[in-house]
Amino acid sequence: MRSPGIDLIRRMAGGDRDGFAAFYDAYASLAFGVLRRMLPPEEAAEALQDVFWELWRAAGDYDPSRGSPEAWVTVRARSRGIDRVRSVRRREEVFVVAESADDASVDPSFEDRDTVRGALASLPEPQREVLELAYWKGLTQSEIAARLGQPLGTVKTRMRLGMDKLRGLIGVSS
């Protein structure tokens, strides 16, 4: 099934501002949901603006054979989210040595966002845990291994098993 997003991206590539507005209206909540999982509200809104600005500028490079508009948007949103999460973490390591890591992880703005929904919820706990730390916290495999006290190899295996299962669950065939 051809996504209506593809036509909108094509219009964006032609410099069509209304096409961009329609594209934004269709996909902003997708990108914002991802960013909100990773960042506090204000920062998520800033990142959202960066993401759509980039999408507008990169519309000419979009190739539908390489992924759906949903994936195009999600990849971009995750990448900007990860940049921000990681640079905040680096800064915190430098400046907030006195505070325990737990304090940082219980940011009140994340309180209502702990529910596990949809596809992730159906994964076995060890795989879900690894995927969530990567997806929402922007942790790398070795950071996840350190946090969970598990060998790196175990984390890599769980991540792959989880991703394969996810891919099967939601009917993305290859």
């Binding site: 902003a28 509200p41 759509f52 992924g67 759906s68 990849v75 995750r78 669950l169 939601i170």
Partner: peptide, 25 residues
């Protein structure tokens, strides 16, 4: 395929952004 799967996970999290972002863009 993995990226499509991750986009589907993201679809479970949809959240309306604040209106000022659209206006700014």
């Amino acid at each position: 395929a993995y990226r499509e799967a991750l986009a589907r996970v993201a679809a479970d999290e949809r959240e309306a952004p604040p209106p000022h972002v659209r206006a700014a863009l």
